[in-house]
Simulated assay, not measured.
Amino acid sequence: MATAMELRRRAKRRKLIIQGALIVLSVIVVLGAIQSARVNLAALGITSGFGFLERGTGWDYSFSLIPKSINDPYSKTLFIGFLNMMFVGFISIILSTIFGFLIGTARDASNIALKTAASVYVQIFRNIPLILQLIFLYSVLIHFPGPRQAMSIADAVFLSNRGVMIPGLNVPPSVALGLLIASLLLVAVLILLKTPLMRGLLYWLGGTVFGCIAAALIFAPAGESIFSIPALAGLRFRGGITVPIELAAMIVSIVLYGSAYIAEVVRGGLNQVPRGLTEAGQALGLTPRNIWSRIKLPMALRSIIPPLVNQWIFIMKATTIGVAIGFSDLFMLVSTSITQSGQTLELIAILMLAFLLVNFAIAQFGNWLNARMKLKAN
């Protein structure tokens, strides 16, 4: 008779054989589908492959973080779309998280007026479809007055149907993009070092401000100020940073929608903190702010992080709604590239791979962050 160990080995071997057979079968099915698609495309006179990425596009689009031209190859055009998607996604994630925590905390407050206002905000922006909010906001913004009648705030910020003009550093766009990436890397380093929340925010703010000023001192043109203030020159504004209407509408609508959901996640996490812990803090004479920052928030984060990461992934995927207003994110540029080149399968595969990689990275970061926040067993 076979021993128990031999039976376990046989069962393990049988499982490995079955899994190997399933993998081989899956590979055969995928290769067969690819070959069938190639045959069908060849019959229609459509070439397959990624050689088209080196061809020039011959068409233009609205927004880019780096210099662009209608003669750019498809590879650079798609890379620009990827940068635009990442830019909008991460800006929206950061702002949605900040506002979501503020609104969620307000919903958990004892002040009735503050709690009611936060609840109304959540109910309004959570229950209206995101694309409807985007189209409504875009329709409002494009009907603002022209540059000569632009709305002004302290003669430094201007809002017109051309966009939002704000003061900025007198540095090239590529340097500004590098500063944004460096700021995100600083956040990752502070998290890796387990820096306390409030201290980490101060370090991040100080480091970002220092980096911006240093970059402006180094890269600003000789004899010019390190700050650039927008000023009307003819029919347009010169200087400062111009945020196009499409970009402003995208970020504002996604932040309003995403922060409403994140606020509910935060409120649910704060409500799960045992009342006895807050009562113990009150007995020790802690202020409400200290109770929130030292007791409620650290305990709530352990239940907030998993659904919060899901919201981050949703916000990144929500950048695809920009196609409704002509914002040149990856989805819109892929759609236009399909129309112009006819390489449907390849371009859809590139789009799917890009979102898979970005959202997988966000999910892995969330898993790592969740593991770091778990209570350690003695």
Rank of each mutant, 00 (worst) to 15 (best):
N84G: 10
S139Q: 02
A109M: 04
T77Y: 00
L169I: 00
G163M: 00
Q123K: 10
G163Y: 00
N161C: 10
S152E: 12
V164E: 11
M165S: 09
P145E: 15
P73I: 07
K115S: 14
M151S: 12
L134S: 06
A154L: 09
V171T: 15
F125N: 06
N127Q: 12
I91W: 09
M85F: 10
T97A: 01
L159F: 15
L169K: 05
M85Q: 13
L102C: 03
N71T: 14
S92K: 02
L78I: 00
F144S: 05
F125G: 08
I124E: 15
F101H: 05
P73V: 09
G104H: 06
S160H: 07
F79W: 07
L159C: 12
Y138L: 00
P172C: 05
L141A: 09
A156E: 15
S160V: 03
G89L: 01
R162Y: 13
Q123M: 12
I135D: 05
D72C: 11
I153W: 06
I80P: 10
I142S: 05
I166Y: 02
G163E: 01
M151W: 14
K115Y: 06
P73E: 09
M151V: 14
D155H: 06
I91V: 15
N161M: 09
V88T: 01
T105Y: 11
I80E: 15
I98G: 08
Q133Y: 06
H143E: 09
F101T: 00
M86L: 12
A106F: 03
F90D: 14
P172H: 03
A106T: 00
V157T: 13
A118F: 13
R162A: 11
S160W: 08
F125R: 02
V122M: 02
V140F: 00
G81D: 01
L141Y: 12
F136C: 10
D108K: 07
L134C: 06
A156K: 13
L132D: 05
R162K: 13
N71M: 11
S96F: 11
G89M: 01
D72N: 15
M86P: 00
I166P: 01
F99S: 04
A113G: 10
F158Q: 11
N161R: 11
I93Q: 04
D155T: 08
A154T: 06
M85V: 11
M86H: 01
N84Y: 11
P147I: 04
P129E: 14
I93R: 01
T97H: 01
I112Q: 11
L134Q: 08
N161F: 10
I98Q: 12
A156D: 10
F79T: 08
I91Y: 07
V122F: 03
T77K: 03
P167W: 13
A156M: 15
G163A: 02
F158D: 13
I128C: 00
A117G: 14
P129Y: 13
N127L: 10
L83R: 08
A150Q: 06
L130W: 02
L114A: 15
G163F: 00
Q133T: 15
A109N: 13
V157Y: 05
